[in-house]
């Protein structure tokens, strides 16, 4: 595996130190596949006692409470809280439009995925990175454990912009491919000419805890353009002739806010968490402040 040079600059040591104290949270009860560090509502095997119930034939004799049997002459089964793991997906949009801004939106998405993935790795969750429109065969396997951090960073660093696929089919495919439960963080700029509404629909059906992190560059929020311009779309080479003027910029702001509000409301109504992340907001703030407020991490 070729080592991509910017794998190391995705996360700073200081940020890692802060992230270590965090953990991924979900509002939904998930059934993990492997025993993890996460306390589950599901009863199972752990050191933490939960309840008693009557013994029925076929129960594991190891969990019988022999002391109670001795006192009451009845068979009770001790129930414990199950500890389990969580499946965390970081889904990145790697279209050309993500290759804009300083730092680029894609780099920002990588950093965010790395930070959240690290939180997951530390807590022994399954972390999986996926790229929209990426070849399914080449999909990265789930990672687990702190030691996998290097592999996670390499996987993220390998993601190159240029995968210009519409959001809708690629997200649908992702959902079909991963019917599991878990947390899904979608890192995208939502700039899809066919509209993001259609694209996010499969995520609603998916029983996942979905976070839509809307990454936009400062140039998109406050365009610094002047004069008569022919704007060329870097993805489909579509052009838009504009003459920049104050009314036009005001109009742009209006459109932008409609777009952002629309996305926020769309997500809100469908139980998706939405977060606008301009690329000039530090990753640390996004993770430890905004995503914390929204309950993704604790």
């Amino acid at each position: 595996m070729s080592h991509v040079p910017d794998a190391s600059n995705l996360l700073s040591p200081a940020l890692l130190a802060r992230l270590e104290r965090l953990e991924l949270v979900t509002r939904k009860i998930f059934r993990g596949r492997l025993k993890g560090e996460r306390r589950s509502r599901r009863l199972g095997q752990s050191v933490e006692f939960a309840d008693y119930r009557d013994y029925v034939a076929g129960d594991d004799l190891r969990f019988l409470d022999w002391n109670l049997f001795a006192r009451l002459d009845k068979l009770f089964l001790r129930l414990f809280l199950e500890e389990e793991d969580l499946h965390f997906f970081a889904v990145l949009d790697a279209s050309s439009s993500m290759d804009y801004g300083a730092p680029t939106k894609l780099h920002y998405a990588r950093q965010l995925a790395a930070a959240l993935g690290f939180v997951g790795l530390v807590r022994a969750d399954r972390v999986q990175v996926a790229v929209l429109g990426g070849a399914p065969r080449a999909a990265a396997p789930p990672l687990r454990g702190r030691r996998s951090l290097r592999r996670l960073l390499d996987q993220l660093a390998e993601i190159q912009p240029g995968l210009n696929v519409p959001l809708a089919p690629s997200l649908r495919e992702f959902c079909l491919r991963h019917p599991t439960k878990g947390i899904l963080v979608l890192l995208t700029d939502l700039l899809d000419k066919q509209g993001y509404e259609q694209a996010l629909q499969p995520l609603v059906a998916q029983q996942m805890d979905v976070y839509v992190v809307h990454i936009l560059a400062r140039e998109e929020l406050e365009p610094n353009l002047q004069g008569d311009l022919r704007l060329v779309d870097c993805e489909d080479r579509a052009v838009a002739d504009v003459t920049i003027s104050r009314p036009l910029l005001d109009r742009y702001q209006q459109t932008l806010h409609q777009f952002l509000d629309g996305a926020r409301q769309y997500c809100h109504r469908r139980g998706l968490s939405y977060l606008l992340a301009p690329t000039d907001v530090p990753i640390e703030d996004v993770v430890t402040k905004y995503l914390r407020q929204r309950g993704l991490v604790r």
Partner: peptide, 14 residues
């Protein structure tokens, strides 16, 4: 000519 990430918003603006 000016390349932008997306003309999506601009198209809707104009």
């Amino acid at each position: 000519r000016q390349e932008v990430p997306s003309t999506y918003l601009w198209r809707r603006t104009i």
